[in-house]
């Protein structure tokens, strides 16, 4: 066991991680935000979804470190217009935002990589067909698809089922709007790699196409896709916020980070700046650390830079 830990610790990957201060700091910040989000039911001081604990008397309390008669350490970052503790709301909201974003990107990655590999490797009519579908897809923004899917689901399912299915509707809508980007990147790189002689060497010994795609081409096209995926994770979180704003997102009883920013935006110029600034800062830290880690990952995965 100890030897295995030592092997992982000494690997090129970990070495490059330990040597990069940017990667270390962003990983630390990301870990902080993600841990706060994942363990929010145990860490958060209040449960913002528990309506019984809310009181209008608690609304608009400023952050505790500012001081003043209204503030108190029971609400470290203050409260919003409903009297919800902002820190707890942020922790629960990050959880929802992260889950929707990550699931949507995973979905888009799976569809995009599969399509791009097949289109690039098989070529010809299959390629034209798949890429035209991707082009058509690009003309529908995520919001339109979300409205469409949401409308269908709303009509087809009873209200309580619909509320629970809303997360999956969001994941589908955001994911389906983002897959063409992955498909195009993967297709482009696949076209380049397919013509290389190492692919021909694999064809000479008669490897089946799916194995050439998975074991030879996929590892060589994955680098740029992973970087795009991390950038898109931030964008997907923003998509989710936009959709929540339009009322096709998550039900208002489960606010995400984007919803909190939107709520706070109404009070930004009336003095209650903290309602929007703290969720906004959390979102910025989250997205920035994901992107910086993505950058580092790209370099670390490139064998020529080792």
């Amino acid at each position: 066991m100890n030897r295995m830990i030592a092997r992982v610790w000494d690997s090129d990957f970990c070495f490059s991680f330990r040597r990069s201060p940017v990667a270390l700091v962003s990983a630390l910040l990301l870990l902080l935000v993600v841990a706060g989000a994942v363990f929010s039911p145990w860490l958060a001081p209040h449960d913002p979804s528990d309506l019984a604990s809310l009181s209008v008397m608690d609304s608009f309390r400023p952050p505790a470190f500012i001081g003043g008669a209204d503030s108190g350490w029971a609400w470290p970052l203050g409260t919003d217009d409903q009297g919800r503790d902002l820190l707890s709301a942020i922790m629960y909201g990050t959880r929802i935002s992260l889950a929707v974003g990550a699931l949507a990107i995973a979905f888009a990655l799976a569809v995009g990589i599969a399509t791009g590999l097949v289109a690039g490797y098989v070529g010809g009519v299959v390629d034209s067909l798949l890429m035209r579908i991707a082009d058509i897809q690009l003309t529908f923004p995520a919001i339109l698809i979300a409205l469409l899917v949401d409308g269908v689901v709303r009509a087809a399912l009873p209200r309580d089922v619909h509320d629970r299915a809303q997360v999956y509707v969001l994941v589908f809508a955001i994911g389906i709007a983002r897959w063409p980007q992955f498909a195009r990147t993967v297709r482009g790189s696949t076209l380049v790699e397919r013509g290389r002689e190492y692919v021909m060497a694999a064809r000479v010994i008669g490897l089946p196409s799916w194995r050439i795609m998975l074991s030879h081409i996929l590892p060589n096209v994955l680098g740029p896709v992973l970087v795009i995926a991390t950038l898109n994770l931030g964008l997907a979180i923003l998509d989710e916020a936009t959709l929540s704003f339009l009322g096709v997102g998550l039900p208002p009883t489960q606010p995400s980070l984007g919803t909190l920013i939107r709520i706070g935006n109404d009070f930004l110029f009336s003095g209650e700046w903290w309602i929007t600034v703290f969720p906004g800062a959390t979102l910025a830290v989250l997205v920035l650390s994901i992107n910086l880690l993505g950058d580092w990952l790209r370099d670390a995965l490139n064998p020529r830079l080792r």
């Binding site: 002689e197 190492y198 021909m200 030879h216 590892p219 060589n220 064998p303 020529r304």
Partner: peptide
């Protein structure tokens, strides 16, 4: 020889 071996 630079293209015929999978770099990864």
């Amino acid at each position: 020889p630079y293209a015929s071996l999978n770099p990864r």
